[in-house]
C-alpha cells in the first residue's frame, strides 16, 4: 500500500540576517505498510514521527525540503498526486479535539469531510449517519459543539471524520494521548476494526504498550531514522529484538525491568556516523565512521553495525 524509502526532511532557516542554515531533522526513514495491517511507529518526542505524518499529507511548512522515495499503491507519490489523494485515499485522525472547528456543530464537520472526500451531496447525510452509528455516537451528538464532547467521544468523532470517506490509508497521530485506559483501548479497537476491513493503518505513538495491543508490525524511530522494524510479537521476548535502542526501550517499560540502560539523548548528531553513537553502550570505532544501512534481519529490519 505505502512504501517509503530513505526519506529525509530538512529545514532551511536564516540566522543573523542572511546567514542560511540547513538543519536535517529526519534522515534515513524507511517504512512500508500492507493493506489490512497496523504499522505502529514508535519513538520519543522529536524523533520525527509527526514530520512523517506531515510529509505523507504534504502539509510541511514551506521551508522544508523532502528527499527520498514515497510510493502509494505502487505509483510514486508526487506533491501533485498527494494533494489529490489526501482526504480521499489518505486520511488523518488528528491528535485532539483542537483539530475540530470550535464554532461549528460536529455533524456539520463530519458532513464536510464526507463532501471533501468525494461523496455526493445526496449521499453524504446517509453516510454520515452510518458513521455515527458505527462509532456508537447517539443521534443528538451531531448537533453538539466540540467543547461538549468527552475525551472518548471526541476520539470517536475524529475517527468518524477520517473514515467517513472510505480512505484506504489511515494515519492515527497519538490516538491514546491523555485518555484513560478504557477509552484508549476503545480507540485502539477502532483502528483494529479498520485494519480488519482491509485498510492500512499507520499508528503513530510514543506509548509502546498501547501500540503492542493492536499492531501487527512495529517501526522504531530514533533520532530521525528507522532503527528497527519488528513484528509485534518480537516484543514478548527481548532476545528477539535486534537494535540496542529497542532493547533499552523494552528494559525501560514498567512491566519489564524498569531500568534505563541507555542515556536518553534527543537530537541526531549531524556528524558522520551512527546517529546513536554518543548514547549507545555498544559503540566502538566503526560507529563513528559511517551511517549504518538498514539491513534484513529475520522477519524485520535493523540499522546497526553490530546487529
Amino acid at each position: 500500500m505505502l512504501d517509503i524509502r530513505d526519506l529525509s526532511v530538512s529545514f532551511t532557516s536564516y540566522s543573523f540576517g542572511l546567514k542560511r542554515m540547513e538543519v536535517c531533522v529526519v534522515r534515513g526513514l524507511d517504512l512500508s505498510i500492507a493493506p489490512g495491517q497496523i504499522m505502529a511507529v514508535i519513538g520519543q518526542s522529536g524523533a520525527g514521527k509527526s514530520l512523517l505524518a506531515h510529509a505523507l499529507l504534504g502539509i510541511l511548512p514551506r521551508n522544508a525540503r523532502v528527499e527520498g522515495q514515497m510510493s502509494f499503491k505502487g505509483k510514486p507519490l508526487t506533491p501533485y498526486r498527494l494533494s489529490a489523494l489526501r482526504g480521499r485515499e489518505i486520511a488523518l485522525i488528528p491528535q485532539s479535539v483542537t483539530a475540530l472547528n470550535p464554532l461549528l456543530r460536529v455533524g456539520g464537520q463530519v458532513t464536510r469531510a464526507a463532501l471533501l472526500s468525494g461523496i455526493s451531496k445526496k449521499e453524504a447525510p446517509a453516510t454520515v449517519r452510518q458513521a455515527f452509528v458505527r462509532y456508537l455516537l447517539p443521534k443528538g451528538v451531531a448537533a453538539w459543539f466540540p467543547r461538549q464532547l468527552s475525551g472518548g467521544m471526541a476520539r470517536r468523532v475524529l475517527t468518524a471524520t477520517a473514515t467517513v470517506g472510505m480512505a484506504d490509508l489511515i494515519i492515527a497521530d497519538e490516538p491514546t494521548n491523555g485518555l484513560d485506559p478504557i477509552t484508549a483501548r476503545e480507540s485502539l479497537g477502532h483502528l483494529r476494526e479498520l485494519a480488519d476491513t482491509g485498510k492500512a493503518v499507520l499508528l503513530i505513538t510514543h506509548d509502546i504498550e498501547a501500540a503492542l495491543q493492536v499492531a501487527d508490525m512495529v517501526t522504531v524511530f530514533h533520532a530521525g531514522a528507522t532503527v528497527e522494524v519488528a513484528r509485534a510479537e518480537d516484543f514478548k521476548e527481548p532476545g528477539n529484538l535486534r537494535h540496542p535502542y529497542t532493547k533499552a526501550l523494552w528494559n525501560a517499560l514498567p512491566a519489564n525491568n524498569f531500568v534505563g540502560t541507555m542515556k536518553p539523548i534527543a537530537r541526531a548528531s549531524n556528524a558522520d556516523g551512527c546517529p546513536l553513537q554518543f548514547c549507545c553502550n555498544d559503540q566502538d570505532s566503526v560507529c563513528g565512521q559511517s551511517v549504518p544501512m538498514l539491513k534484513r534481519s529475520g522477519a524485520g529490519w535493523v540499522r546497526c553495525h553490530h546487529a
Binding site: Q44, N177, H206, A248, L249, A252, F258, P264
Partner: peptide, 14 residues
Amino acid sequence: TSMLDALTQVHIWR
C-alpha cells in the same frame, strides 16, 4: 511522564 517515551520516563523516575 505520560507524554514521554519509556526510556525518558525511567530516567526521570530514577
